[in-house]
Design a binder for these strands. Sequence first.
DNA 1: ATTAAATAACACCATTTGGTATCATTTATA
DNA 2: TATAAATGATACCAAATGGTGTTATTTAAT
Lengths: 116, 116
Amino acid sequence: MIGTEQGAFRALSDPTRRQILVHLSHSEMTIAEVSARFEITRGAIKKHLTILEEGQLISVRSFGRERINRLEPLGMKQANDWLNYFSRFWDDKLNNLKSAVETHEKTRKHKEINDD
Amino acid sequence: MIGTEQGAFRALSDPTRRQILVHLSHSEMTIAEVSARFEITRGAIKKHLTILEEGQLISVRSFGRERINRLEPLGMKQANDWLNYFSRFWDDKLNNLKSAVETHEKTRKHKEINDD
DNA sequence: ATTAAATAACACCATTTGGTATCATTTATA
DNA sequence: TATAAATGATACCAAATGGTGTTATTTAAT
């Protein structure tokens, strides 16, 4: 579980940034086009886009004086892969989770907790 | 895309909290057991556990003077579901993403960008 | 009944975060 | 060329964050 997902999770933690990603899932946009969709200043949007780029959730390319922001799969995938490690906890909940609980009960009763 | 995932993503943004989740995926633990696995103080761990609980990534139950922390599927699933909306951007990358880019190129050329 | 263990609840601190406003730079366009 | 547009960069601010240390409370054990 040594991961490179920190940048992605950090970027995903802000609701404005997640909204930006949804907008960019419809079409790539310049900074001005993104900030037209929000009430906050362009400066704030630019900071959000920088953080999204650092998390490799978007990529940016220059086109004249414009910077075109586009969804980048890598960061998305890193975050998704990390979460998928836990998928057994919500898939087949009644089966896997229940048996896990029973195992823990027994473990606790016998005071043999030792995993890291 | 109106979501309740904010608490989960907020909780997931800190690497210590993500590590705690990995530990809890092996076995449920008391606060003392969790903090034994980290260098920081128990007080700091308690704060992290509170944030994880708020994000519904763990649940806490009392057992005598102990508080037993257990992985909670709901928050996990909320974050996963949100990310899955974007899965087409990393699944079949060469096909879907490429055609999306081409669509956007045309849109840009014609200056008809209008989605929100 | 005392004492120790597990946790809760604070107050406090330094740093980060999300935002603003302002000014500079680069690139199109009249 | 002069001007407008798009962005970059910086300084600044209030609030949130991640951490500490200390004290109080509840529960278990001698």
